[in-house]
Design a protein around this nucleic acid. Structure first.
Lengths: 125, 125
DNA sequence: TCTTTGAGTTACCAAAAGTAAGTAACAAAC
DNA sequence: GTTTGTTACTTACTTTTGGTAACTCAAAGA
C-alpha cells in the first residue's frame, strides 16, 4: 500500500512520466498537431477536423491542455456561443518534437506494417 | 479544406494516426525508453524497473512492440524460462525522437505545474 | 411558436486496464 | 516423494476510462 502510493507520487513528480501520461491519452497529441496546422479553431471545427473524437473527449482533452498551459481558450460573449482554441507559446514549442515522431512514423510506416503482417502469419503456425 | 484533412486523419492507413495510436497506449514509450537504457532485459526485470505496470499490460505492450518490429524477443529453452527483450534497429531509431520529447518535458515541467495549479485556483472562483 | 445554432454536459453502455490468482515445467530443499 | 521456488506468462474478475446519444442554454430566424 505504502509502496504503491510511493510509486504514484514518484511518477507524479517525474517529468518523464508526466509527459508520457499526457501522451498516454490518445487525443492530446492529435489536438496539438491540428491546432498547429490551423492556428485557431473553434470547438466544432476541431471536432470536424479530427472526425472520430467524441465531444466528451474533445472537451476533456482541451481542458487538460488548457490546464497545462499548452492551449488557450477564448470565449466570445455571443449567442450561439463562440470559443476559439489555439496553441500557446509553450504549446508551439512542443510541436517540433512531435513532428520528429511524425517524420519517423512516415519513414518507417511500411516497415512496421510488414512486420505486423508477418507477425500475424507466425501466430497462425 | 477541412474535409480533406478529415479523411486523412480518420484513415486507418494514416502513418500519423497509426504512430499516435501506438503512443496512445500509455506503456509503449516507457518500455522503449527503459530498453534503450538497459540494452537487454528479461520480463521480470522490465517489470521491476518500470514498477507500476501490471504483468498483463507488460505482456500486451511487449507483444505489440514485437509485432511492430520495434522490440525483439529471444526465448531460451530453459527451466525456469528465460526471455530477453531488446530494441531492434528500427526501435533504436525511434529513441532520439522520444528523447526530444523528454528533453522538452524536463525543460517545461515547472511551467506546466505552475499552469496546472493556477488553473485549479481559477476553477474555485 | 418552433426550429436552429455552438459548445458543451449528462446518463448510460462498451472497451481498456488493473488485480489477484492460477499455470507450466523442473530443480532443489525438506 | 512431497513441498517450495523459479520465471514468464494467462485468466477471471473488477475498476477506470472512453464512446454514444440525448439534453441544455439563450437568442435569432421562419
Amino acid at each position: 500500500m505504502l509502496e504503491k502510493k510511493d510509486k504514484f507520487l514518484k511518477s507524479e513528480r517525474c517529468p518523464v512520466r508526466n509527459i508520457l501520461d499526457r501522451f498516454g491519452d490518445k487525443w492530446s497529441t492529435l489536438v496539438i498537431l491540428v491546432l498547429n496546422e490551423e492556428q485557431k479553431l473553434r470547438f466544432n471545427e476541431l471536432h470536424r477536423v479530427i472526425g472520430d473524437i467524441s465531444q466528451k473527449m474533445l472537451t476533456v482533452t482541451l481542458r487538460n491542455l488548457e490546464a497545462d498551459g499548452l492551449v488557450s481558450r477564448k470565449v466570445f460573449a455571443e449567442i450561439p456561443p463562440r470559443v476559439e482554441y489555439q496553441l500557446t507559446d509553450i504549446g508551439k514549442s512542443l510541436v517540433p518534437h512531435i513532428s520528429g515522431l511524425i517524420t519517423w512514423a512516415d519513414d518507417n510506416f511500411s516497415s512496421i506494417l510488414e512486420s505486423r503482417s508477418s507477425y500475424q502469419q507466425k501466430k497462425k503456425n
